[in-house]
Design a protein around this nucleic acid. Structure first.
Length: 433
RNA sequence: UCCACGGUAGCUCAACGGCAGAGCGUCCGGCUGUUAACCGGAGGGCUGCAGGUUCGAAUCCUGCCCGUGGAGCCA
């Protein structure tokens, strides 16, 4: 078999109608009918049906085709034909087949499976058309986000995964050991990005973040990816404008260029079809809405998931909730000069119950105020010496935000759980595969 | 940590105090246009673990383990 002759991928087949081509991939499924057989072959770009008729091929090829097992790796050659009876509209009239490896009995049948079984077999589950579509969408979304930022003068500056202290001192961290000293897996690169933005102006870090919370919900991962831009000289308003434009850009690009992925995922496009601007409401207005909805909340309480959903349901597009009470937010957030009891922070809530996809704020740039806050929050002052230095040497107003990649993907793809938005999810008590 | 639901064949599930079953997958046989193909046959079980109640437990009770969803926390 001249296996490299006219080597094509499944998605390229329409351009090779009437030609003899070679395709390399895996057997997705097969059906046989006496002296005719249908092999569904996937190669990562799509699935094509290969037709084998006993009369048209050698006995050896016929025998090989008959005995292929699910997910066996193969190289097939044949003639490309347009045929409405074939899924995808094109099929391959098989002339030759070569088995690369004959697969053992495959654990995943082509039918419904339970979550536990699928997660145990995540390394194989990834081969299904739905998971392939999600991962392609993830790749596209990540690329567009970085493209958006780079086009606006941002540089990617990475931040450390191993850190000596809790960045914000709130959530539970994974502890490890650093040559005898305690160390922690990062939960955010933000504090470091505040340093690099004073060096480069506009930066972002893009890395995994770790939260050792015993969270077991569809909106949480133990290890997730966070994109965190940080901008010198950006006010709270500048910050919200950037967030809005970035989300708008990604959604528009997905709708324009990757509609077929949304269709593969049965994602209704209508809820994604909206325009800027996104509504901006204050924390105070949000509390009023929640009271109207009959939810119990007092001024000063942070929102829980039911609260976020109730607020988001009032709007047909993402909504900013801004100016939170200082006591329910992080220590580094700049107080509103008009109302020092609230901070210049905002959460962006996605529609359809997908919750908070962005959390951001203007950062305190005054040395004395920041030191006061560190003490007020009971944080170890000595650990923040370098962070305080940023307020001693050319301090400027600056702002930034953190975007949860898997939450954004889940919303755009219409997933019902974050675990499908990352190749190998780390969940409560689940670290394999 | 708390609350709810669950654990039976490789997978998805039924049986709910009285012989442990079906569909799918696998294997064998049949079929020249199949669409998660179809038809016939075969193999497949410590009913999560330990104890208790009972003539008899997959089924009822207690404890534990594991999973799922949610709360809290957050992106």
């Amino acid at each position: 078999m001249t296996e490299r002759e006219n080597l094509v991928t499944v998605d390229e087949m329409p351009q090779h109608e009437g030609q003899e081509v070679t395709i390399r991939g895996w057997l997705y499924n097969s059906r046989s009918g006496g002296s005719i057989a249908f092999l569904l072959i996937r190669d990562g770009t799509g699935i094509v049906q290969a037709v084998v008729a006993e009369d048209d091929v050698s006995a050896e090829v016929w025998e090989t085709a008959q005995n292929l097992t699910q997910e066996s790796s193969v190289i097939v050659a044949g003639l490309v034909n347009e045929d409405p009876r074939s899924p995808g509209g094109y099929e391959l009239h098989l002339r030759d087949v070569q088995t690369v490896q004959l697969a053992e009995e495959y654990p995943l049948a082509l039918k419904e499976h339970g979550v536990d079984f699928l997660l145990d077999n995540r390394h194989l589950w990834l081969r299904t058309p739905r998971q392939v579509a999600i991962l392609r969408l993830r790749d596209f979304i990540m690329a567009r986000l970085e493209e958006f930022l780079r086009d606006r003068g941002f540089s990617r500056v990475d931040t450390p995964i191993l850190t000596p202290n809790a960045c914000e001192g709130t959530t539970t961290l994974f502890e490890t050991e650093y040559f005898g000293d305690p160390a922690y897996l990062t939960q955010s690169g933000q504090l470091y990005s505040e340093a690099t933005c004073a060096a480069l102006g506009k930066v972002y870090c893009f890395s995994p973040a770790f939260r050792a919370e015993k969270s077991s919900t569809r909106r949480h991962l133990i290890e997730f990816w966070m994109l965190e831009p940080e901008m010198a000289f950006f006010t709270h308003e500048d910050n919200l404008d950037l967030q809005e434009k970035m989300i708008d850009y990604v959604i528009t690009q997905v709708l324009q260029k990757k509609g077929e992925l949304l269709e593969e995922l049965d994602r209704d496009k209508d809820p994604l079809t909206f325009e800027r601007p996104y509504p901006r409401i204050t924390y105070d207005e949000a509390v009023d809405i929640l009271h109207e909805e009959g939810l119990s909340i007092q001024w000063g309480d942070d929102f829980g998931a039911p609260h976020e959903t109730a607020i988001a349901e009032r709007f047909d597009r993402p909504v900013f909730v801004e100016r939170f009470p200082a006591e329910c937010k992080a220590f580094y957030m700049e107080p509103d000069p008009q109302r020092p009891e609230v901070v210049l922070a905002a959460d962006l809530l996605a529609p359809e119950g997908y919750g908070e996809i962005i959390g951001g704020s203007q950062r305190i740039d005054d040395y004395d105020l920041l030191l006061e806050k560190i003490r007020e929050f009971g944080l170890p002052e000595e650990e923040f010496d370098w962070y305080l230095d940023l307020r001693r040497y050319g301090s400027v107003p600056h702002s930034g935000f953190g975007l949860g990649i898997e939450r954004l993907i889940s919303w755009i793809a219409g997933l019902d759980h974050l675990r499908e938005a990352i190749p190998f999810p780390r969940l409560l008590n689940r670290m394999r595969p």
